[in-house]
């Protein structure tokens, strides 16, 4: 307020002569601050989601006229073998990618000590996460090379060899293993930060009660790591469903389409060699989105609950 408060309260408030903006400042400001961000987000993220739903009802090559075909794209999906393979691969990714959480916890527990140089060790363990997935994919595809790749050189000492990326039954697992490498590093750093915040008094108290080892971990430590576990879960699920780079780099969907996932198959249908089937691609993306929606709803619900608790 611009006028100084008089010693005796004035019972007749003076007529507000300030400009409209000044009078409504508190109500208007947040919208002014939100406007640019909201505009960008609406144009590039929110509308496109609905547009994709719409495009999935058309037959469209991206250039000419789009023909409305109703649910035909979805009917075609139901009988598309490649779609089925991609869908199951997505589930494999989802389930196996979650291994990053216990693996990350294990490494975090291993590194949660104070010895000389431990900070550097922690950074070096984390460092796969900073590298782009493209490079991770290249690194692993060389690591897996038949005959000359390091993996097969080591296996050769035991008299066996394995061509992971050339075998339709193994290739997906090989790629998931490559993806687990940076993802485990991410979970590790979440848990290292989480372990720092574990209440030492509770640990001591539990120790006096004779808890140690696994029981201590399960009943005392893990419950306290819940926030870290939640974030690890969120980022791992998102990472699993977004997997694209590694597949594109390591196998390009092959051998015989055995490593496709929905995100990759969608890209292939809409933009790559099969010609521009935008509508069909959008339909695949919609399916992927609906899978994700289950998780998004759960994440938002958890965050909403925390928000209600933190209300001030």
């Amino acid at each position: 307020m611009t006028t100084p408060t008089p010693a005796v309260p004035d019972t007749h408030p003076p007529a507000d002569t300030r400009s409209w903006y000044k009078r409504n400042e508190i109500r208007v400001t947040p919208w002014l601050f939100l406007a640019p961000g909201l505009l960008f987000f609406a144009v590039y993220v929110v509308f496109p989601i609905f547009q994709s739903f719409n495009i999935s009802l058309y037959r469209w090559d991206g250039l000419g006229e789009a023909t409305f075909i109703g649910l035909d794209n979805y009917r075609e999906l139901a009988t598309d073998r490649a779609f089925e393979v991609s869908f199951w691969n997505n589930l494999k990714w989802l389930v196996l990618y979650l291994l990053a959480i216990p693996l990350g916890l294990a490494i975090a527990l291993f590194l949660n000590q104070t010895v000389t140089g431990i900070r550097l060790y922690k950074s070096l363990f984390f460092f796969p996460f900073v590298i782009s997935q493209v490079v991770v994919g290249l690194v692993f595809s060389w690591f897996y090379l038949p005959q000359v790749g390091l993996l097969n050189v080591v296996l050769g000492w035991f008299g066996t060899s394995i061509n992971i990326l050339g075998d339709p039954d193994l290739a997906t697992y090989g790629i998931i293993a490559a993806g687990l490498w940076p993802q485990t590093a991410y979970c590790m750093i979440l848990y290292l930060t989480g372990l720092n915040a574990v209440d030492p008094e509770q640990v001591e108290a539990a120790r006096l009660d004779g808890a140690k080892g696994w029981r201590m971990l399960w009943y005392v430590i893990i419950p306290q790591l819940k926030p870290a576990t939640f974030i690890a879960f969120v980022v791992t699920i998102i990472g699993a469903l977004r997997s694209f780079d590694l597949i594109s780099i390591m196998t390009n969907g092959g051998p015989f389409g055995s490593t496709r996932v929905l995100s990759f198959y969608m890209f292939e249908k809409a933009l790559a060699e099969f010609g521009f089937r935008m509508g069909y691609g959008a339909a695949i993306a919609v399916v992927l989105f609906l899978i994700m929606l289950v998780f998004i709803a759960y994440f938002l619900w958890s965050m909403y609950r925390d928000e209600q608790e933190a209300r001030r």
Binding site: I55, I238, L262, V286, M292
Partner: peptide
């Protein structure tokens, strides 16, 4: 929550319209 949700979206659903 709209900002958060948008951030979780698989980007493939944005691909065709954004392109």
């Amino acid at each position: 929550f709209m900002f958060i949700a948008g951030n979780f979206v698989p980007f493939q659903i944005l691909m065709v319209p954004v392109r």
